[in-house]
């Protein structure tokens, strides 16, 4: 299924199903889901997912690929993933530039990779294998992190090197740029300028929580704040039109409120990306 550039989507939570199917309170152009939560699922939720998939294009955002892991890739899992992406005609599959498995144990969360050249080489190699197996480009996200680990280069150089050397696409999570810039004292705009922006294929927007005066945790549990909208505007001025996703995983508000955030993103995207048409689902 094709997805219009500049389309605005929402992260699909099961609690949203009725509202999405009804489509009056909330009308995204597409929904994004984690394939790990749906692969090999049958029964009630398979039926519900199929209903959602009949109404909206589905983009996938994975959790367990663990592209940055020292462990070997899980080929059985990647094969299942491909079958799922094919079944739902998924036009864009993204993952995190992090690792979630190590020493043969899954951690089910995203850990920061050491920013080092050997890690770049290792990941570039794995990206090629995954892209070959999935027969589609991999879109990798800049993740939020709370401490660097064994870093020998900057985050922006690390991300850029991987994208340039592997030819993969970049999922620019604007909130993560904001969170990392705050937590690690750098200029978020300079960070964006340092990325290979031609490779951006997808963007994420989300809210976060400040837990200490000097630390923000990327919770996806609050509305997007104004400085992140501003940073989004800055990013959209410098990129071609791409799909944009609103992530909201916790503290789900009223659907109308969420739709308000979608509309605000849609307005910014439409004003920046003047030549792009917004998706037909929104009209």
């Amino acid at each position: 299924m094709n997805i219009t550039e500049g389309a605005i989507g929402v992260g699909y939570r099961r609690a949203m199903t009725d509202a999405l199917l009804d489509g009056t309170e909330i009308r995204p152009d597409f929904v994004e889901l984690a394939p790990e939560n749906w692969i090999d699922v049958g029964g009630t939720w398979k039926k519900r997912l199929n209903q959602v998939a009949d109404k909206y294009p589905i983009l996938c955002h994975g959790l367990s690929l663990s592209i940055g892991s020292p462990d070997e890739l899980d080929y059985d899992f990647i094969a299942k993933l491909k079958a799922f992406l094919d079944e739902y005609d998924v036009p864009l599959y993204s993952e995190h530039l992090s690792y979630s498995k190590c020493d043969n144990a899954h951690l089910y969360d995203l850990l920061p990779i050491p920013f080092r050249q050997d890690a770049v080489d290792h990941i570039v190699n794995r990206i090629r294998i995954v892209q070959d197996m999935l027969a589609r480009p991999l879109v990798l996200e800049n993740v939020s992190y709370y401490t660097p680990v064994a870093a020998e280069m900057s985050e922006v150089d690390f991300v850029s090197a991987i994208v340039k050397e592997s030819g993969c696409k970049l999922l620019l999570d604007v909130n993560n740029v904001y969170v990392n810039a705050f937590n690690h004292n750098y200029d978020p705009k300079a960070y964006i300028d340092g990325l290979p922006l031609d490779s951006v294929a997808y963007m994420h927007m989300a809210g976060h929580h400040k837990v200490q005066p000097d630390l923000i945790i990327d919770t996806h549990g609050a509305p997007i704040i104004d400085p992140v909208y501003e940073l989004f505007e800055y990013a959209t001025e410098r990129t071609k039109p791409v799909p944009v996703l609103l992530e909201r995983d916790f503290n789900l508000p009223e659907m109308a409120e969420l739709n308000g955030e979608l509309n605000r993103l849609r307005d910014i995207a439409a004003s920046q990306w003047v030549n792009s048409s917004s998706s037909s689902h929104a009209s």
Partner: peptide
């Protein structure tokens, strides 16, 4: 190839 120290750092964090 990942360096030993990179693997050790990743393993230490996950452990």
């Amino acid at each position: 190839m990942l360096r030993k120290s990179t693997i050790e750092a990743q393993s230490a964090l996950s452990t």
